[in-house]
Design a protein around this nucleic acid. Structure first.
Lengths: 341, 341
DNA sequence: ATCCGGCATTGAAACATTTCATTTATTGCC
DNA sequence: GGCAATAAATGAAATGTTTCAATGCCGGAT
């Protein structure tokens, strides 16, 4: 390692003061053209690279925003990340994407890391239902925005999607197709998402004069494909077998689809299927999946913008906001029209 | 922002010197039990959080390793990231995952960022075929490991998978099933991956006394599902239509599958299909996809370990290594047995 | 000749930590 | 009681940058 080619060496070599070198880098317009050229060429020649840690030490905070997601393997969060990244880069900030993998402990670790790093802000989808991690993080003077969750106490920004409406859309669609025996494949009901989507589903049923009994409940432990396969097996064993299935996310739906297909049950012929999230693979399935599209990219982007608004120059006039985006039903092959009942 | 609750305030409040506080944090064993307890409780009470930038300034490098991948939307890289993360966390390091999205410019930007951050090391799958970005980055005293690529000049570590063998495995399997009219759906041939997998495919053909003509070549611009659909459309138009298709990755294969399925062509009945990578969604497709499994998680993990070896205490006796992992064929429904030809 | 204003440049302070050579206290030993 | 050895604690230096009040310089106005 060429140990120290710092601003000082550059200054000495170019025959100017360190202050001038700093100015060349940070406010080039305040330096005479000639000096600027000389300094720049020296920087180039010496291969000087600014040391961010020193700058940061002085500034008090870094130029990075952290994004802590629940599951990097879920394309939904990848889209969120891309949205956040886009917004951040436009503002000259970096994004550090981390994965709590739904573990409150990992989440706590990462939040600690972020605090030590004095990141500019944090975007997160909390894994810790008790809110303890979040509460303890709030002692830090680091702004944060909740993604895909609303803050109970309304004491911070959040961007989420209206899950009740999403559930309503899905089930309304299935009812419109004539189905009367439905099932809801859910993840853990302690997740607000799963509860809200069911709530929406029930709302749609009520509107048609149907009760809770028309919606069989299948609950699995995780929101992934393997759990979807389990759910599929359970659906196959039901009698009467539901003719329409609404899944709390696309991964579950893909698992269900696979199970049904493997058992020779035709989709959408015998069972209509609707997922949630509209991840890329939903459209890519052999039977393209009808799904409730979440504006994931936009959510990430909006969250980052909200954060930067809070961080930015005129942070004084920032009011915490609760932004709720609307989902949208995307109808594809897995729920084709059938005679109305 | 509580402006400065630093080590100094803690020291004053606990009635010790700053050095002692630092010792409590970094070498607790060198401090008397009583003092340690007092300092720790003061830290707790004041909510002191170490400022990483200052520590880093002194240390000269950060405690983060950077991972720069080609495509965050590809589950393959997500697995690589998880592997790297695992290894890094075991060593108490953080991982910053960044996405060059195959853009040499973005790649250059990120490498610049990493240099300024003095990250502990960089794991990357280069997007820049000219090698210019890499060459200029090598001026930095930051160790790096190439992932899924080998370094032409052998002047650094790399972890890759034997793609020739992978292609061989796939086509050998198809030939064994009796197929004689094959197609290779490839991404851009400037990618070593695509070239090598084809090379392996040809090797398998040669061994059976078949020539290049038995392998129709379908090349598309990107390695994603949409391109796979295009490829599928082109396959459908061929005559004679290939009875077996080997795709350069699973995303392409899923696209092809969807195209074929949409056209009413049965898989594996009329066309046998083999993908590459064995991403989770390959197994989750309605017709589970036969695929060449890449040890993605292990690759990420190994790369991180290699990096830490180079960074670590006894970095002196570190020799650059070129590790080549072996792929493995996973046979599933998309290529079922059929009569031997 | 003197003063003024504006511009370019300077140099030292400040940021929060770690490290290490010293200092101070404690214990055991003769 | 004095001395050496050990343990614990100290405090100042060093890290690389940014910022800002102060300085120097030059041309033009008085």
């Amino acid at each position: 390692m060429a140990p120290g080619v710092g601003i000082k060496e550059v200054a000495r070599e170019a025959g100017v003061s360190v202050g001038t070198v700093s100015n060349v880098i940070n406010r080039p317009e305040s330096v005479s053209e000639e000096t600027r050229a000389r300094v720049l060429s020296t920087i180039e020649r010496l291969g000087y690279v600014r040391q961010e840690s020193a700058r940061q030490l002085r500034a008090g905070h870094s130029r990075i925003i952290a994004l802590l997601v629940l599951d990097m393997a879920n394309p939904f969060f990848v889209d969120v990340a891309r949205g956040a990244e886009r917004a951040a880069r436009e503002a000259g900030l970096g994004v550090m994407v981390c994965n709590s993998a739904q573990s409150p402990e990992e989440e706590a670790d990462y939040l600690g890391l972020f605090a030590e790093q004095r990141v500019r802000g944090v975007l997160m989808t909390p894994a810790d239902m008790t809110g303890r991690n979040l509460a303890s993080f709030r002692r830090q003077p680091i702004p944060f925005v909740l993604v895909d969750r609303v803050l109970p106490s309304a004491e911070g920004c959040s961007v989420s999607v209206d899950d009740v409406t999403g559930g309503d859309l899905a089930v309304r669609h299935l009812l419109g197709l004539g189905h009367r025996t439905l099932a809801y494949v859910s993840g853990p009901m302690r997740l607000a998402q799963c509860r809200d989507r069911r709530e929406g589903a029930l709302r749609a049923l009520r509107e048609r004069g149907l009760g809770e009994s028309a919606l069989r409940h299948v609950e699995v432990g995780r929101l992934d494909v393997a759990s979807g396969r389990d759910a599929g097996a359970r659906l196959l064993g039901m009698s009467p077998r539901p003719t329409a299935v609404f899944c709390a996310n696309d991964l579950l739906a893909l698992g269900v689809l696979q199970s049904l297909y493997g058992a020779g049950v035709s989709v959408p012929g015998e069972v209509a299927l609707v997922g949630y999230d509209d991840i890329e693979f939903a459209a890519a399935a052999a039977v393209p999946l009808t799904s409730v599209r979440q504006p994931a990219f936009r959510m990430g982007r909006t969250a980052a913008e909200l954060l930067m608004e809070e961080t930015g120059e005129r942070a004084g006039d920032h009011r915490h906001q609760r932004i709720v985006l609307q989902p949208e039903l995307v109808v594809r092959g897995s729920s084709l029209v059938r005679s109305r009942g």
